[in-house]
């Protein structure tokens, strides 16, 4: 009986996230997600882009990032919607799709206490978006506040490719 219950509980524990996140929906970004994300991409050059559906400059930059991802398959591209409330997974997903980022690793802030999420990522970050973090193969993080220049991203990407050789 106990074992059955445990199995049922374990099954249930996995259900809500599977149900909530349909195919292609942004993953909920919660406490601890940042460390998991860093761990999952350790050793891979990774571009993490923070944005939001109501942010004007983000609307301009997002399609440029979609293009960047296409041209640089060697870079892991991660987007995190860091708009505060409410969560707007549909609007978020449709903007990502239109920008050519539907197949990127996409996340969405899922904690009303956004200070706590931002603090885990960078205690100095007050929530301004867009924001891009370039994580090198060796874990070195370069933060670009505001819209990134694609030329700078290309330069960083080329430098990352050079470190393999």
């Amino acid at each position: 009986m106990k074992r059955h219950l445990l199995a049922a509980l374990m099954l249930l524990a996995t259900l809500p996230s599977a149900l909530a996140a349909g195919e292609g929906a942004p993953r909920p970004f919660e406490r601890g997600s940042w460390q998991k994300l860093l761990h999952a991409h350790a050793g891979h050059p990774t571009l993490v882009h923070f944005w939001g559906v109501t942010c004007g400059p983000c609307k301009v930059e997002l399609p440029e990032l979609g293009q960047f991802m296409k041209v640089h398959p060697g870079i892991d591209v991660v987007t995190i919607s860091a708009d505060l409330v409410p969560n707007l997974p549909d609007a978020t997903r449709s903007m990502l799709d239109r920008a050519g980022l539907g197949s990127a690793e996409n996340w969405i802030f899922d904690d009303g206490f956004a200070e706590r999420l931002r603090f885990e990522i960078d205690p100095a970050w007050q929530g301004d978006i867009p924001r891009t973090m370039l994580i090198a193969r060796d874990g070195t993080i370069t933060t670009i506040e505001g819209s990134a220049e694609i030329a700078d991203l290309n330069k960083w990407s080329d430098a990352q490719a050079a470190t393999i050789r």
Binding site: P28, L84, V85, P86, F109, D110, G112
Partner: peptide, 19 residues
């Protein structure tokens, strides 16, 4: 369990995600 905790979890996660 399937019915109740799902509701509870949905509600909790909703309130958790909301300001």
């Amino acid at each position: 369990l399937a019915a109740v905790p799902n509701l509870a979890v949905a509600q909790m996660s909703h309130q958790h995600a909301s300001e």
